[in-house]
């Protein structure tokens, strides 16, 4: 299967400190790829590179077969990348309706977006005129996810969807993510709460110190390696 999104041998740095040392990850249509690893491994930076919010030192960013290395976030968004950043990707002082209006810059009509979002998350329709910041964490993540549903992106990038949410809410949100993938969207998920995402992932990559150390199907061997990585191991 031809990948929709590819990071090829990407190096990236914060100032003089290099944090990604040749990372290669790819996501195909309808596939959920989990990017896992401990704090400081470079997972969020990899997502930011894919969304164009962090510059690439060397390597390539390929989207739909086109080299988009160095493109700005706006162009990447219009080309089909949708990043839901860590800590609720919503505008807290805008109403739910205005948040949805902000999704129309990718070329979809307001009516189209509201129809999809309100059908998938009926609670958002009830909160339509409420400032997004006054909703619960789970509801805010639903609003953020509505972007992934309504704007019909090619690739959805999710950063720590579970942050600060109850496990039950996290489970429901990941069900929606799986549903989005089933519609043909490629999903790249960064998550520390590995158990939640491995349930829906088709492929997993484990990052350590800015490198992908291990990748493959999320089988029991990979889960065991992950446990060792998080909890320490004598082996």
């Amino acid at each position: 299967m031809t990948p929709l999104l590819e990071l090829r041998d990407v190096r990236a740095a914060y100032g003089k400190i290099t944090v990604l040392h040749g990372v290669s990850v790819s996501v195909s249509a309808g596939q959920v790829v989990a990017l896992l690893g401990p704090n400081g491994a470079g997972k969020t930076t990899s997502l930011n590179v894919a969304a164009g919010t962090h510059p690439v030192q060397s390597g390539q960013l390929i989207l739909g077969g086109r080299d988009m290395t160095g493109a700005n976030p706006r162009d990447l968004a219009r080309a089909g990348i949708c990043l839901i950043p860590e800590g609720r990707g919503v505008f807290p002082n805008l109403s739910v309706r205005d948040n949805l209006l902000m999704m129309t810059f990718t070329g979809h009509s307001r009516a189209e977006i509201e129809a999809v979002a309100f059908e998938r998350f009926p609670i958002l329709a009830k909160r339509a005129n409420q400032p997004a910041g006054s909703m619960s964490g789970g509801e805010q993540q639903m609003l953020a996810l509505a972007r992934g549903l309504a704007t019909d992106p090619a690739v959805l990038l999710l950063d720590e969807l579970s942050m600060g949410l109850a496990p039950l809410v996290v489970g429901r949100l990941y069900e929606q993510v799986a549903e989005i993938a089933r519609q043909g969207v490629g999903v790249l998920v960064v998550e520390q709460f590995a158990a939640a995402v491995l349930g829906i992932a088709d492929h997993a990559a484990v990052m350590v110190r800015g490198r992908v150390e291990r990748e493959g199907a999320p089988d029991s061997e990979l889960r065991a390696e992950l446990s060792a990585l998080y909890l320490g191991s004598s082996t």
Partner: peptide, 23 residues
């Protein structure tokens, strides 16, 4: 208007505005 929403959204989170495809 949409530009009005874009203007108010810029105060909340400029980076996120870029991610939605707005300017």
């Amino acid at each position: 208007t949409r530009i009005g929403a874009e203007m108010r959204a810029s105060v909340d989170d400029r980076a996120l505005v870029g991610l939605t495809g707005a300017n």
